[in-house]
């Protein structure tokens, strides 16, 4: 869906659902998912419909993901860090996730 203009920035290694994803410094988690072609980042707690980042500016809460074990974080506000583990979310979370 998206391609990088140039490989600016330093390579940052994160995992998404256990798989390695090559991100760049300056990426947010949501941007890294989009750049990696990951189609959706969660399913909704109401009907289980797939959702992907929508606004990229912190207002729509579609890009909610679990980051380093903490659930429902806004991926578009979290800069990637080396070694970060990201999990896509499905439906209702376990309490505390």
């Amino acid at each position: 869906m998206f391609k990088r203009l140039a490989d600016a920035g330093v390579a940052v290694a994160i995992t998404v659902d256990g798989k390695h994803v090559g991100a760049r410094s300056g990426d947010t988690v949501a941007a890294a998912l989009i750049a990696a072609g990951i189609d959706h980042c969660r399913t909704t707690p109401v009907t289980g419909a797939p959702r992907a980042p929508y606004c990229l500016m912190g207002v729509c809460f579609e890009c909610l993901v679990t980051i380093d074990g903490v659930g429902s974080r806004q991926g578009c506000l979290a800069p990637v860090r080396d070694g970060m583990t990201v999990e896509t979310q499905s439906g209702k979370r376990e309490a505390g996730r």
Binding site: P45, V46, S72, G91, K92, R93, E94, A95, G96, R97
Partner: peptide, 8 residues
Amino acid sequence: TSRVAPFI
């Protein structure tokens, strides 16, 4: 809280 799976 936001919706979580039933636990209580």
